[in-house]
Simulated scan of single mutants.
Amino acid sequence: MSYSNLPLARRAASPSSVSAVPLHFSATCFIGTLVADLAYWLTAELTWANFSDWLLVSGLLLSLIAGVAIAIDLLRGAITMTSAISWLYIAGLGLAFILSVLNALVHSRDGWTSVVPTGLALSAATFIAIVISAICSPRVRSGHRQERL
Rank of each mutant, 00 (worst) to 15 (best):
A84D: 10
Y89R: 09
A66Q: 04
Y89M: 08
V35E: 04
G59R: 08
L74T: 08
L46C: 12
W48L: 00
A49F: 03
W87P: 07
I65Y: 05
D73K: 04
Y40M: 00
Y89G: 08
T82N: 12
L34R: 01
I72Q: 09
Y40A: 03
A84P: 04
D37G: 06
N50G: 12
I72C: 08
I65G: 01
L61E: 11
L62D: 02
A66G: 01
I72M: 09
L64A: 14
L46G: 11
T47Q: 12
L55I: 09
A49P: 00
L55V: 08
W48F: 13
M81I: 12
D73F: 00
A71Q: 10
G32E: 05
S63M: 12
S86P: 07
L88M: 10
N50T: 15
A84G: 12
L42M: 14
I72L: 10
L64S: 12
I90S: 12
N50M: 14
L60H: 07
Y40V: 03
G32C: 09
L88P: 02
W41L: 10
I70H: 02
A49E: 00
A49S: 09
S58H: 09
V35Y: 05
G59D: 07
L60E: 08
T33L: 06
V35A: 13
T33P: 04
L42K: 14
W48D: 05
S63V: 07
I65N: 07
I65R: 02
W48T: 03
W41I: 07
V57Y: 14
E45N: 15
A69F: 00
A49L: 05
N50S: 14
A78I: 01
V57L: 15
Y89Q: 10
I85Y: 01
S52D: 08
Y40C: 01
I72W: 04
S52M: 02
V57N: 11
L64P: 06
L75C: 13
L55Q: 09
W87R: 11
I90D: 07
A36D: 01
A44M: 12
L75V: 14
L56A: 06
T47L: 13
L42D: 13
A44C: 11
G32M: 05
E45H: 15
A66C: 00
